[in-house]
Computed example of a mutant assay.
Amino acid sequence: MGDMIRASGLVKRYKDVEALAGLDLTVPEGKVLALLGPNGAGKTTAVKCLTTLIKPDAGTAEIAGVDVLKEPALVRSKMGLSGQYAAVDEHLTGYENLVMIGRLYHLGKARSQQRARELLERFDLTEAADRPSKGYSGGMRRRLDLAGALVAEPPVLVLDEPTTGLDVRSRQGMWEVIRELVSSGATLLLTTQYLEEADKLADDIVVIDHGQAIAQGTADELKARTGGERIEVVLADVEDREAATRVLAEVSDGEVKVSDNGRELTAAVRGTATGELLRVLQGFERETVTVLDVGLRRPTLDDVFLALTGHAAESDENESDEKEMAK
């Protein structure tokens, strides 16, 4: 099993801002790599370099063994791209959109029509096939856009934040579609701000910030770097905060974290998690601390990202967004 996507030392500068600062990526055949990072981290710039939309200032990249810089046309024939925003012609029907893409790929009229019907059925769009896509919901437009990326049956797919702006139900539906694609043998590069999305879909995760990879591994490996299990407590009365903190400090491997409202406390445990939880409950009984909720949880990818970068993954700070860089 070889690497279907390979990038080495990708650099891209916009004026005095370095959007990519020597990024390395590899995606084996049939696997999913999630590129995770906040807005402006360089995810979309990396996608544009890999999909021949822009040229990197330095570095190399290959798609299915084809050099991105030397043979861009051949690269485009081997990949499907679904960008952040659904690239559909709203004046055409769903069926017409897919047929048009097939004709652009020189599939021929008959094959383009056949492929359009196959994909409309696969993405549960048959009933809306002959309606103008401007009347589609956000989830339907995203599914149609992903169907368009599959018209030519490419071995490599690049999905740039495919569920941005979707409601929870539509996002989960898109995850099911992506799982089906991977199970059928597709190789996938997925960029996302949603940590849960990376956790559920990716075989491997690369966390990037300021155009550089700052961590890589499976979701479990990255979580392990952040530490063991945590005890989380929600107090019934904020006046119990000091007593609860003292109890948690007895089992905590570090500082007990207290929320701004003073009622939610978190402590990373240093011993056997269930045993330490029992000690905490006994301590709360001794100190007459009343709780609304108490439990154990493993670190999440949110914890990982916060530990690695010092800020949350779903950042709204867009000053360094790539669109601004290009101005």
Rank of each mutant, 00 (worst) to 15 (best):
Val156Met: 12
Leu157Lys: 02
Val158Phe: 09
Thr164Leu: 15
Leu166Gln: 00
Leu166Gly: 03
Leu166Met: 11
Val168Thr: 08
Gly173Trp: 00
Met174His: 02
Trp175Ala: 05
Trp175Glu: 04
Glu176Cys: 08
Arg179Pro: 09
Leu181Lys: 02
Ser183Lys: 15
Ser183Cys: 04
Ser184Thr: 11
Ser184Val: 02
Thr192Gly: 02
Thr192Lys: 03
Thr192Met: 05
Thr192Val: 04
Tyr194Asn: 06
Glu196Pro: 01
Glu197Ala: 03
Glu197Tyr: 10
Ala198Cys: 11
Asp199Asn: 08
Leu201Pro: 13
Leu201Phe: 13
Asp203Ala: 09
Asp203Pro: 08
Ile205Val: 15
Val207Thr: 06
Ile208Glu: 00
Asp209His: 13
His210Thr: 13
His210Tyr: 14
Gly211Ala: 09
Gln216Asp: 05
Gly217Arg: 04
Ala219Asp: 03
Asp220Cys: 02
Asp220Leu: 11
Leu222Ile: 09
Leu222Trp: 09
Ala224Gln: 12
Gly228Asn: 09
Glu229Gly: 03
Glu232Lys: 11
Val233Leu: 05
Val234Cys: 08
Asp237Met: 07
Glu239Lys: 14
Glu242Lys: 14
Thr245Pro: 05
Thr245Gly: 08
Arg246Asp: 15
Arg246Ala: 15
Val247Phe: 03
Ala249Val: 08
Val251Ser: 03
Val251Gln: 05
Ser252His: 07
Gly254Arg: 10
Glu255Pro: 01
Glu255Thr: 12
Val256Arg: 01
Lys257Asp: 12
Val258Thr: 00
Ser259Glu: 10
Ser259Thr: 06
Gly262Ile: 04
Gly262Arg: 05
Val269Phe: 02
Val269Trp: 02
Val269Arg: 00
Gly271Val: 00
Gly271Gln: 01
Gly275Glu: 13
Leu278Asp: 14
Arg279His: 15
Val280Glu: 00
Val280Met: 10
Leu281Ser: 11
Glu285Gly: 14
Arg286Ile: 07
